[in-house]
Amino acid sequence: MRGAKSRPQPSSLLGLVPRRTSLDATGPSVELAVVQCAPRKGDVAANLRRIEEAFAALRHDRSPFPDVVIFPEASLSGYFVEGATVEVARRAETVVDELARSARRACGRKVGPFDVVVGFYEEQDGQYYNSALYASLGRRPVLRHVHRKLFLPTYGIFDEERFVSRGTSIEAFDVPYGRAAILICEDACHSLAVTIAALRGAQVLYVPSASPGRGMEDVEPANVRLWRDVLRVAAAEHGIFVVYAGLVGFEGGKGMSGASRVIGPFGDLRAEAPFEGATILRVRIDLGDVRVARAALPALGDLEANLGQLSSMLARTSGQSVPAVGARAARRR
């Protein structure tokens, strides 16, 4: 796999990045590895082997083994599978068991417990979803969360809702280093979805994605530029880390434009992988930056203060009549 290019100097959207290293921040430090990969279409077993190869590559890397390894949307099958969704879908628990076996084979006992985020087509009681799971892999694997994609693109070259059902919730969940949330691809294009994740306490937002490259009038596909802009604004507005894992490879003429990236809570781009080719992106983050960023730009706090009125406005907009929700009531912690 090619080494990812880190952007040399992070810059925030508002020039708020303090001139310091993460050593000043006091939060937990988390080593991330985003694995930008091209699955073999429909071959779940081969793609699990590929994940195992990624674990092995990380084990032999000169940096310490990561705390979290993140894979893109539909990593076990490829994205465009149409009616074959029923053939490639797995139960989340089954996937965790398979990932744990892969981790054991690749790392043995030389690597301690670590976490994974993996996008996959999920089957649960005869229902099918475009999902991503968060699990801790160790002696006793723990499935911490499954996010089911809510915004199923069904327009243009996309046809998701024909084959999978919508998810119905956005949750944040406890992880060894704090709180995290997952949104899948188009979910994260909707600022309201990111807001809900942040209000529920997420400090790190994982975004597994599969974005076909299109719009070739500039030096990079237009969707790559759009995603970068959208996610930087999302990170800065909410003072959260955003970790985007993009699929690569061509699927029936549609080239997935990886450009996996990690964005800091100032909206600062920490590192970005090329939009083509399998790549592992390695970034160490310090969750103390979330506190620093929110102190500098308390947009999330301002939002919480106005949440009651905003909720009423939203309810009126959608034709419902519900009492105003107290700001703190929206938080689950």
Partner: peptide, 25 residues
């Protein structure tokens, strides 16, 4: 009505397309 492309990007994209569709797939 502009139908301009960045030829360097499209060239790179199509070369990758040919390699992936022919050799990889």
């Amino acid at each position: 009505t502009d139908v301009r492309i960045d030829p360097a990007l499209v060239r790179r994209w199509l070369v990758t397309f040919l390699r992936e569709e022919m050799i990889v797939r």
